[in-house]
Every structure is written in structure tokens, then in C-alpha cells.
Amino acid sequence: MNVFRLTGDLSHLAAIIILLLKIWKSRSCAGISGKSQILFAIVFTTRYLDLLTSFISIYNTSMKVIYIGCAYATVYLIYMKFRATYDGNHDSFRVEFLVVPVGGLAVLVNHDFSFLEILWTFSIYLESVAILPQLFMISKTGEAETITTHYLFCLGLYRALYLLNWIWRFYFESFFDMIAIVAGVVQTVLYCDFFYLYITKVLKGKKLSLPA
């Protein structure tokens, strides 16, 4: 565990909590892509099946349980409790275009051709693109609430910090995992356009709105 790993995990946790609180406090999931949240629930479920087979640490287990629990709670709030506020018309990204190729890639390119390992690989690949329905929704409506942009910033920052963690581990532990690194780079790159808008607009007190 190094400082980048820890801050990455905390940034991820902050993102998840920010989104849950935003929906809970405003009693609304307007502007939030339910499809992205379903994808994240699938990501956590397929990645953390090793909860049942191996124990790493109290930290590891509790973070996994919190991530999975919050992901399902978010999906529940969007599709059940506050479904009247869900903006399904603007959440029109075709997720099968993500899930099917990612599933195929996980079967073809993995560390080990076993059930759990393929599911883990699938979750890594899927996570790298799971935010696309959310970004697509924002580009469609042309705007995002400021609290939603804080959520996205923390979520993007988390993987960027993991990249630094992997560089650290490469130098100090001679460890690297090509699958996680490539997917992590893709994931971080997808946020670059958003990072630019966040820094130039939101941090200067302006609302994030895209030119028509």
C-alpha cells in the first residue's frame, strides 16, 4: 500500500458517497445515468467475487463490501425509490455495444483462462468504459449539475491515482499488471476532456455547460 493507492481508494469512495448523498438529499436522480450505475454494479460484482474465496485484509474486505453495497444502493435509488425523477430519455447510450465487445476481449486477453480470472478481467475492461453512458448523457443535455461534476472528478481522479500507484509499484516492487495498466490508461484518458472542463469552468465557480 502506497500513498497513491490509498488516496485513489479514498477518492473512489468519495465519488460513490457524493453520488449517493446527492440523490438522497435532493430526492432526485436527474442528470445521472442509471446505465452507468448498473455497469458499475456489474463491475464490482464480477471483480469482488474473490471475497468468497480469499481473504486479503480487513481494509480490503470492508472496502469491497462498501463499494458493492453503495453501487446497489445507487441503482436501487435510481430505478426504484426515485424512478420518477430518472431521465431515461436522455440516458440512451446502447450499453450492449460496451458489454459484448468487453466480454469477448476478456475471454481472449486475460492472465489465466479460469472463470474467476475472466470475470475479473471483464470487470477491469468494463470499468474503463462504464462512465461513457454518463458522459454521453451530459453531452446530450449539454450540462451537468455542479455536484455531479464533483462526483465525476473524484471518479476520474481515482484511476489516475492508481496509474501513479502502478508506476510506484513498477519501480519499487518490480510489479506490473499489463491488463490493469492498459485499461487504467484508457479509463483515465476518457476523463481528460471532462477534467479540462472541470478545471476551467467548475473550479472557477461556473456551471458546467457545453456549447450548443
Partner: peptide, 10 residues
């Protein structure tokens, strides 16, 4: 080469 994954990461 592909190194095996880090089981301790989230």
C-alpha cells in the same frame, strides 16, 4: 510479458 494481477488492489 503479462504479470499476474495484484490481488490486494481494489
Amino acid at each position: 510479458c503479462l504479470r499476474k494481477r495484484a490481488k490486494d488492489e481494489l
